[in-house]
């Protein structure tokens, strides 16, 4: 499926992006011959039949793991190799945090259904879930700037993923945390609520079930019954949901990276589209498909761990 999606994106990218546009309107104007000479060695010349171009590109990946070059000649491999870790850092941290927070809040509000705590948590969640990510991220930037001014030093950095000239393990760790805090917070803020609602409704269904009543009748406290019996069953659908929400996290990461000026895959996505970098666009699509598949595999593993009825053969 990943291969099919990547190839489809290749053809769609050719339909909508025109690498030639980068050279039209340059001063001094380039002759047709010069443009062809620039594009031809990069497999971006539209005079070559599409299938020939495609085979060049596809066989390059198959045999040399070479994802081609952009219109300015920089290697897609190098770009992606650096950027994917920047993005992975942000997305992994945010996904773990928002899942844990959502599940914890879901358990909290399910065990206090319709009481004050539940109502407040639900009211907050429905608002945060529907704040657009752009507004959330920029709002956090404003708050952080105000906070930095009150404290007097730069606690939160609002641009970039790391500072230049920081070395040593602990300084680097602190520096990374200062940079990663805000974008992660923005992603968590808008993402946690869906797990809150899902976990709450699933857990409520399970709390009313016979086996939880049985556990209570055996003498377990309500807390124990929820933790040991109801929670484990209701976690299974939530983990499947996590896998399918990874593309949404990626979309959110595109916007957060552009706001916080992180040089990650999301920013690469914007750059490649504006520069008509076809090979780069396809690499971004492939990255998206790979992390979706990765999420699906992780979810399968989690289900096997949680659900004793599923046996691995």
């Amino acid at each position: 499926m990943v291969v099919a999606v990547t190839n489809l994106t290749y053809f769609l990218a050719w339909a909508y992006l025109d690498p030639r546009a980068n050279y039209v309107g340059r001063r001094p104007p380039l002759s047709e011959e010069q443009i062809v000479n620039l594009l031809e060695p990069r497999d971006l010349y539209d005079g070559t039949p599409l299938l020939v171009r495609w085979w060049h590109w596809f066989s390059g990946i198959l045999f040399h793991w070479d994802w081609g070059v952009g219109p300015t000649g920089q290697s897609v491999n190098e770009q992606v190799a650096y950027r994917m870790w920047v993005s992975a850092e942000l997305m992994l941290g945010a996904t773990i945090l928002l899942t844990v927070l959502g599940i914890a809040l879901g358990v909290y509000s399910a065990s206090r259904q319709y009481r004050l705590g539940d109502r407040i948590a639900q009211g907050t969640s429905i608002i945060t879930m529907n704040i657009p990510i752009v507004v959330a991220a920029l709002g956090l930037v404003l708050l952080a700037i105000a906070f930095n001014e009150t404290v007097g030093t730069t606690v939160f950095y609002v641009t970039g993923s790391s500072s230049i000239g920081v070395s040593g393990f602990f300084p680097v760790l602190v520096d990374t945390l200062q940079h990663i805090a805000l974008p992660t917070l923005a992603l968590v803020l808008i993402g946690y609520a869906q797990y809150h609602f899902l976990q709450r409704s699933l857990l409520l269904d399970n709390i009313k079930s016979d086996y939880v009543r049985m556990a209570r009748a055996k003498g377990l406290t309500k807390q124990q019954a929820i933790r040991k019996h109801a929670l484990r069953t209701s976690l299974i659908p939530v983990t499947t949901q996590v896998a399918f929400s990874i593309p949404a996290v990626f979309t959110g990461a595109v916007l957060t990276e552009s706001i916080f000026a992180w040089k990650g895959m999301g920013q690469y996505f914007i750059e490649t589209i504006t520069k008509n970098d076809i090979h780069g666009v396809v690499a971004v699509a492939a990255f998206g498909a790979v992390i979706t598949a990765f999420g699906a595999i992780l979810a399968d593993i989690a289900v096997v761990v949680l659900d004793p009825r599923v046996r691995v053969s």
């Binding site: 499926m1 999606v5 996505f269």
Partner: peptide, 14 residues
């Protein structure tokens, strides 16, 4: 499974 946001961006940019 298709990268819809990417397609969306390409098409509307075009």
């Amino acid at each position: 499974v298709a990268p819809t946001f990417l397609l969306l961006a390409m098409m509307s940019n075009d």
